[in-house]
Every structure is written in structure tokens, then in C-alpha cells.
């Protein structure tokens, strides 16, 4: 039987941990609301950008365009892995890291080299110790995340892709489904895969203004920047969702632990009282003789 003092000390320690988890849950919840709003507002724009891009891509010889043409088979693949800078968010980073590692292994071969761009401290810390090739580590994007930061990353990827440094680029990130669920997705960023528009082609050729080429110079590039931004926002919202859920569980577990420990403490206290009583009675009986 552990002694009463030890149990009381443990209760106090669990209580203070619980205070922290509860506070973290509240903070994550507040920030989640903003992040969720951001991603949900961006999605309609992203979807329509894809639609517009598909309309023009479907009427173009895609083998000509640097960002649309497929290069088969790819000799060098870039995986852009989106993790978070902070931990304490359940399986959020572990899921991403595991998927990234698996993707790197299955896509890699003697003819195909896979390299990783890692966004977020947590991915960096894990993947550095794994047998994967890391090209670039980006940390700190999540503080004051804005479109300009995402566009910068997007532009650098496009630049290297156009230079032929890579034949395919994939994004690995957590897609925000709901507060409770995030889904790890591996999405092809480059070459851009336009949606199939062949069945909704209507009579009458498209008018392109100022010209098809001018539009093709700008739209695909913009789409890549936007996709990077969208993936970042998805990831941020997922991170807060995951953290909120994890911290909620931790708070509940702490509650349970406090209950069990309190029970133990009461037992220990009662045992102590009983023992003392027995001693007093034994003593009294001794005097009576």
C-alpha cells in the first residue's frame, strides 16, 4: 500500500497536468475556428480555379506545356511533406511521417530517385533519422501563414520543376475532414492533372482573351501556388483539430486518474485510522489486565 502522502502528491501533480491540457485544448479550439474558416473559405476558390484551368487545358495540346506535360517514367520525384512545428497533437505528425516514408520507399527505385522537402519541425526531426533523402527543410511557415509565403514555396517548386530538376511533385498533407478526423492524402501537384472536361464540351469554340498562350503562361503557375496554400491551410486546420481532440482525451484521462487516485487515498486514510484505533484498543486492553 503506497502511503497517503505519496498518493496526495500524485493527485496534485495530475491536477496540474490537467490544467495544462485543458488550457491547451481551449487554445487549440479557439485557433481551430479561425483555421477552419480559412480553409472552408478557400475551397470554393480553389475548386473553381481548377475548373477554369481544366477548361483551357482540355482544349490544349498538353504535351507542349511545361507544367502540364507528363514525363514518363519519372526519374526524380519530389515529395513535399507538411507536418507541424509543434507536437502534442495526437497522431497528426506520426501519420504524415509514416506515409511520407512509405511513399519515398515505394516510389523510389534504381531508376527513380525520391527527395523530400519537409515543412514543419516535427517532420524534420523524425525524417532526419530515417533512410530518406531530404532536400530542403522549411520551418516557421506556420507563424503568420499567408498567401505570399505559400506562393514563394510554390514558385520555387515550379522553377526547379521547369528546370528539369524533378519529373513529378507530390504533396503529402493532412486534409481537414472535421474536428475529429483528418485524412492523410498524397496528391500530385506537378505535372498538373486537369479534370476531364471532354463530356461537357459544348458547341462553339472557346474565346481566349488576350490569347490562349497568355492564359497558359499564368493560370497553371497560379494554380500551383494556390494548391500549396490550400494544402498548408488544410494542414493547419487539421493540426488544431488533432490537438484539440488529443488534449480533450488527455483531460478526460486525467479526470479518471484523479478519481482512481482519490479512491486509493481514501482507502489509505481509512486503513491508517483503523490501524490507529486497533492500537489504541490493544493498548487499553493491556491496561485493563
Amino acid at each position: 500500500m503506497p502511503n497517503l502522502k505519496d498518493i496526495r502528491r500524485r493527485i496534485a501533480s495530475v491536477r496540474s497536468t490537467q490544467k495544462i491540457t485543458r488550457a491547451m485544448k481551449m487554445v487549440a479550439g479557439a485557433r481551430l475556428r479561425r483555421a477552419q474558416q480559412n480553409i472552408e473559405q478557400l475551397r470554393p476558390y480553389a475548386r473553381r480555379t481548377m475548373e477554369v484551368l481544366s477548361a483551357i487545358a482540355g482544349r490544349t495540346d498538353q504535351t507542349d506545356h511545361p507544367l502540364l506535360a507528363r514525363r514518363e517514367p519519372p526519374g526524380k520525384v519530389l515529395l513535399v511533406v507538411l507536418t507541424s512545428d509543434r507536437g502534442l497533437c495526437g497522431g497528426f505528425n506520426a501519420n504524415i511521417n509514416r506515409t511520407a516514408e512509405r511513399e519515398a520507399r515505394t516510389r523510389g527505385s534504381a531508376d527513380c530517385e525520391v527527395v523530400l522537402d519537409i515543412i514543419g519541425r516535427k517532420g524534420r526531426d523524425y525524417l532526419r533519422r530515417r533512410p530518406v533523402k531530404i532536400r530542403r527543410e522549411i520551418t516557421g511557415v506556420f507563424e503568420n501563414l499567408n498567401y505570399a509565403k505559400a506562393a514563394e514555396i510554390g514558385r520555387s517548386i515550379v522553377r526547379e520543376y521547369t528546370n528539369g530538376r524533378f519529373d513529378a511533385v507530390f504533396l503529402v498533407y493532412n486534409e481537414f475532414k472535421s474536428v475529429m478526423t483528418q485524412k492523410v492524402v498524397v496528391e500530385q501537384l506537378l505535372p498538373i492533372k486537369p479534370e476531364d472536361t471532354s463530356d461537357d464540351r459544348q458547341a462553339g469554340e472557346f474565346i481566349f482573351e488576350p490569347s490562349k498562350q497568355a492564359l497558359l503562361d499564368r493560370l497553371p503557375q497560379m494554380y500551383v501556388e494556390l494548391e500549396v496554400y490550400r494544402a498548408l491551410l488544410e494542414s493547419v486546420a487539421s493540426e488544431f483539430g488533432a490537438r484539440m481532440t488529443a488534449m480533450d482525451n488527455a483531460t478526460k484521462n486525467a479526470d479518471e486518474m484523479i478519481d482512481t487516485l482519490t479512491l486509493q487515498a481514501n482507502r489509505a486514510r481509512q486503513a491508517g485510522i483503523t490501524k490507529e484505533l486497533l492500537e489504541v484498543m490493544a493498548g487499553a486492553a493491556g491496561l485493563m489486565k
Binding site: V52, A55, I56, Q202, G204, E205, F206, I207, F208, E209, P210, A214, L215, R218
Partner: peptide
Amino acid sequence: PGKLGEFGLLPAHRPLLAA
């Protein structure tokens, strides 16, 4: 406001993609 100047759209217009 299109890049090449203002344009107007009415129903049954030909498909258009403009900067």
C-alpha cells in the same frame, strides 16, 4: 474589365476565358 478592354456577357454567349 478584361485585359483587352471591357466586355459584356449575355446568355448564350460563346464560351470565353479571359484575363
